[in-house]
Design a protein around this nucleic acid. Structure first.
Lengths: 150, 150
DNA sequence: CGTAATAATAAGAATTATTCTTATATGATA
DNA sequence: TATCATATAAGAATAATTCTTATTATTACG
């Protein structure tokens, strides 16, 4: 089985998998990288780089926003985190790279994971196969969450 | 049948539908709005606001980038155009609001429409229904297009 | 274990993407 | 056609992200 990290794994195991992937990829295991990964992996939400930076700065006042951006980009390049596409102009991130999709509330902007096996299992249409080589698919659903429906 | 605009309709009809929707919504039918809509509807690609602005400025040198952004936001708010979510940080737009999905080439960033009835017809999982009221769903597939596979 | 080489960081500047402000112009209505 | 509200152009401002550079810290190697 491949080294991966999803929300059903205990945090220690996810951190170990993270460290292993860093080592294999030749990424130095810095304090900042470990703390950024841990902060992202610890909560099930989908923070922006800025939100993550604010959280980290409470513990680590010297952590710079640039490091958060740079590190998240590095992680995303190595498949350690996902950058989530939304209609908003601030990118959102998650450490759970298991197969799932996203629902975003158009009011509070909260993003929640969900499973949709019917879509995961649906074969890509011929049109898509003819277009080129497909590597990833992403479903984002927009609506109003229960909290925001008052 | 609802007034809508997809790539199978002749451009004249799409422009008429556009004008009608503007009138019904109380949106003034300005020269800029008509030209921005026409420019977007005329091509099957998915330009950014900036790309669209460059195209328009060749014909209309006084067209401002702000007007393009503002107008696209207005259009999107009235369901006249789609703002497409991607992992890139520049938003992309399209005038085709018929049901379809998108493939994006990670190299050249080109976006192409495709149909995927299996996904359109798949019922949302209970998890999603329980979350709140869902209004839209978007599928984006990432890969390398034939042109970029050399 | 200490040290050299090199990659990563912090800080702030720079860039890119988008939105706001304000004076002017234009479309819709009477 | 005059009126009035809305939309526009221009450029300033803000927001989001990336770059530059000097410094620091990790890793590999002795």
């Amino acid at each position: 089985m491949d080294a991966h990290s999803d929300c059903n794994m205990p945090i220690e195991e996810r951190l170990r998998a993270f460290e292993q992937i860093c080592r294999e990829a030749g990424l130095r295991l810095t304090y900042q990288r470990q703390e950024i990964y841990r902060e992202l992996a610890l909560r099930p939400d989908h923070p922006s780089a800025e939100t993550l930076h604010q959280r980290l700065r409470e513990r680590i006042p010297t952590m710079s926003l640039d490091t958060v951006y740079r590190t998240l980009a590095t992680f995303a390049g190595h498949g350690l985190v996902n950058k989530i596409e939304t209609v908003e102009n601030q990118a959102r991130f998650e450490a759970d790279i298991g197969c799932h999709h996203h629902m975003m509330c158009v009011k509070c902007k909260e993003i929640v994971d969900f499973q949709w096996p019917a879509v995961d299992e649906a074969p890509l249409p011929d049109e898509a196969k003819a277009w080129g080589h497909i590597m990833a698919k992403s479903v984002v659903v927009y609506g109003t969450c229960r909290n925001c429906m008052e």
